[in-house]
Simulated assay, not measured.
Amino acid sequence: MTRSPPSCSTASPTPHAAAAGRIGDLLTDADYLAHAHPDTLLTALRTVRTSQGRQTRAVYRASAGRHRAAPVQDRRFLLAIDAARYRGTGLHRELCRSLVWAPGGPPEDRSARSWK
């Protein structure tokens, strides 16, 4: 019986990109940053060498402890706030494209979030 290799769609591209010296390509993708597994991405971020890569690393690390338990939309929101704090204008713009901004939001949403 021959086994097939694992599907690329289920494997994280982060370690492969880092090993190939191409992590910077992934760091320009705001959707990828919001969806990536935090621990895997944090490990790969150690290898960045460009100024943009270092800025993205700083943005991601700013709230890294919160990314692990946060759903993707909350992770995107946190990253957008941190990108603005670190003056990552392009990254901030990309992260905000799919955010739904509602002043205050429904009361149940505000009380349900516990970002300690």
Results as ranks from 00 to 15, higher is better:
residue 62 A to N: 04
residue 66 R to A: 14
residue 63 S to T: 10
residue 85 R to F: 04
residue 49 R to G: 02
residue 58 A to V: 06
residue 85 R to C: 04
residue 53 G to F: 05
residue 74 D to K: 04
residue 63 S to K: 11
residue 40 T to A: 13
residue 72 V to E: 15
residue 99 L to M: 06
residue 96 C to A: 15
residue 96 C to V: 09
residue 80 A to G: 01
residue 63 S to V: 04
residue 90 G to N: 10
residue 67 H to E: 01
residue 101 W to C: 07
residue 75 R to E: 07
residue 88 G to Q: 09
residue 94 E to I: 02
residue 42 L to Q: 14
residue 66 R to K: 15
residue 74 D to S: 12
residue 95 L to A: 03
residue 72 V to F: 06
residue 97 R to Q: 11
residue 48 V to Y: 03
residue 76 R to L: 01
residue 84 A to G: 07
residue 53 G to H: 05
residue 64 A to Y: 10
residue 67 H to D: 04
residue 70 A to Q: 07
residue 95 L to H: 05
residue 97 R to L: 11
residue 101 W to H: 08
residue 69 A to E: 14
residue 95 L to V: 06
residue 56 T to H: 02
residue 42 L to A: 15
residue 44 A to F: 03
residue 96 C to H: 01
residue 36 A to R: 09
residue 60 Y to K: 03
residue 62 A to P: 00
residue 85 R to I: 08
residue 70 A to M: 08
residue 59 V to M: 03
residue 44 A to N: 04
residue 40 T to K: 02
residue 47 T to C: 00
residue 41 L to Y: 09
residue 69 A to R: 15
residue 80 A to L: 04
residue 91 L to E: 09
residue 83 A to M: 09
residue 65 G to M: 07
residue 43 T to R: 12
residue 43 T to Y: 09
residue 70 A to R: 10
residue 87 R to V: 03
residue 62 A to R: 11
residue 96 C to F: 00
residue 81 I to Q: 08
residue 37 H to Y: 09
residue 90 G to Q: 13
residue 68 R to A: 15
residue 75 R to C: 08
residue 64 A to T: 03
residue 84 A to T: 10
residue 67 H to S: 04
residue 88 G to M: 13
residue 90 G to E: 14
residue 57 R to S: 11
residue 46 R to W: 08
residue 94 E to F: 02
residue 71 P to I: 13
residue 61 R to Y: 12
residue 95 L to R: 06
residue 38 P to G: 08
residue 86 Y to T: 01
residue 86 Y to C: 05
residue 100 V to L: 10
residue 93 R to C: 03
residue 64 A to Q: 12
residue 52 Q to K: 06
residue 99 L to N: 03
residue 61 R to P: 00
residue 39 D to N: 13
residue 76 R to P: 02
residue 84 A to K: 05
residue 69 A to F: 11
residue 43 T to I: 12
residue 51 S to I: 12
residue 86 Y to D: 06
residue 78 L to Q: 14
residue 80 A to N: 01
residue 88 G to N: 12
residue 52 Q to V: 05
residue 37 H to G: 02
residue 41 L to W: 07
residue 82 D to V: 00
residue 90 G to I: 10
residue 42 L to T: 11
residue 55 Q to H: 02
residue 70 A to P: 08
residue 75 R to I: 00
residue 64 A to H: 13
residue 98 S to V: 10
residue 92 H to T: 09
residue 59 V to K: 02
residue 101 W to G: 03
residue 44 A to L: 02
residue 95 L to W: 08
residue 85 R to W: 05
residue 71 P to T: 11
